[in-house]
Design a protein around this nucleic acid. Structure first.
Lengths: 138, 138
DNA sequence: CGCCTTATCGACAATGATTATCAATTGCAG
DNA sequence: CTGCAATTGATAATCATTGTCGATAAGGCG
């Protein structure tokens, strides 16, 4: 838990490109981000995209969620923002950031109750957004 | 959402073996269950274990959680029990079943608020159990 | 009780996401 | 500017999981 043990990575062209692309706030797989970058003329390699996204996820600069298919999806999250959660559409993937006010406290309480410490939690909420529901309802 | 559209599977030797092994209430990967069965003399195939665990997970007879490594872990859950959650130790894997009283309602409310329907949720709580904490604290 | 249809098996190949390898490149400290 | 270690990218390797397909056996029927 030491912020100093993470040497800031070099600011390479590739890393800049990725940070840049991430401005499209939308969940995509590493491979999808790679494709997009390529299609925009970048010559960045797939492995580099994986490495960058992972390190960004660790440092908290991007959100990573695991899709049902097992692939990991990444999206930029607000700079310096705290831990938060999303409600994602199962059909189109659109995500809304939500607020789970007392969950942190709740999680800690549950942990204490069972003697567990250092509690982490992941909440995945998925549903069907209005548009997709309308389309499917036809 | 029709319980009748799931034809009950044939009760084969293999399926019985799996159901049997699952009595050890502990999260293990499909591969780990397979190994255990083999080590006990079974000749069951890996693909069969995967298939059985998946169908059991769908019918709600076992719990499936996705580990950080990406592999899926399975464990038997109480017969006919409702949707529930676990607090799992990140170190030794031991899991406690927990109660998240109003979360269902909360999830539905969040969904409604954003116009999303058919909400599903996954909650993953992980921590460090007392034993592991003691061991690590040394 | 045997037969037959068909679900299920199991060995193995195939897939698909992610990770490791390693020589070439390039930030960036001095 | 120089040099070295961090980073890159093409590619091979991993690893969990799924597909394939001939062989086997569950279980309904006569």
């Amino acid at each position: 838990m030491n912020a100093a043990d993470a040497p800031r990575p070099r600011m390479t062209r590739q890393r800049r490109e990725i940070l840049d692309a991430l401005d499209l706030s939308e969940f995509r797989s590493a491979q999808a981000w790679h494709e997009r970058l390529r299609s925009e003329g970048s010559t960045i390699g797939l492995a580099t995209v994986y490495r960058a996204l992972q390190s960004l996820a660790e440092s908290g600069e991007v959100d990573a969620v695991v899709a049902e298919s097992g692939e990991t999806l990444y999206r930029r999250c607000e700079a310096g923002e705290e831990h938060h959660h999303h409600l994602r559409c199962r059909v189109c993937g659109k995500a809304v950031e939500i607020d789970v006010p007392d969950f942190e406290a709740f999680a800690a309480a549950i942990g204490r109750e069972h003697g567990y410490g250092d509690i982490l939690h992941t909440i995945e909420l998925t549903g069907v957004c209005p548009e997709c529901a309308a389309r499917a309802g036809a």
